[in-house]
């Protein structure tokens, strides 16, 4: 995986998937582009992999409140996604290469960098441990 800002990648912000024959790019405006526009016209057959479908981000959340089902963007994925960005920021703030233990969710062997993983809360506020 590579993180780059908008000025550094021609396609602009979003996510790009690279395969052996081309790429597909999507941005927040739900605009799909591909190395070959024909890729976008391909129909995914019934016996192929189908991903979770949601046409409305907020509607999907409300639906899931009712159905107790999992949302299209579940909290675990959000947490792991933003972790990458935050760890990048800690590496920049400290000027150090940091190593992350994703299971324990700890920075390995760097107490100074570890201090940046959270903020002290002013009493009586705190982050409850679940």
């Amino acid at each position: 995986m590579r993180i780059a800002n908008e000025d550094r990648i021609g396609k602009g912000a979003g996510a790009t998937w690279y395969g052996d024959k081309g790429w597909i790019h999507v941005n927040r405006g739900n605009t799909l582009t591909a190395s070959d526009p024909k890729i976008l016209e391909e129909v995914i057959a019934d016996n192929e992999i189908h991903l979770y479908k949601s046409t409305d981000h907020i509607g999907n959340f409300l639906d899931c409140v009712k159905s107790r089902g999992e949302t299209v963007a579940p909290v675990d994925i959000a947490h792991r996604s933003i972790s990458v960005g935050l760890l990048g920021e800690i590496a920049m703030s400290t000027g150090q290469k940091i190593q992350w233990d994703p299971v324990k969710q700890e920075i390995i062997g760097n107490p100074k960098a570890s201090r940046l993983l959270t903020r002290p809360y002013r009493q009586p506020w705190n982050v409850p441990t679940i």
């Binding site: 107490p111 100074k112 570890s114 201090r115 959270t118 903020r119 002290p120 002013r122």
Partner: peptide, 15 residues
């Protein structure tokens, strides 16, 4: 006060 207490809390969070 706020900034100082913030710094003290963070400094003691991981020695």
């Amino acid at each position: 006060k706020d900034e100082a207490e913030f710094a003290l809390a963070r400094l003691s969070s991981s020695k």
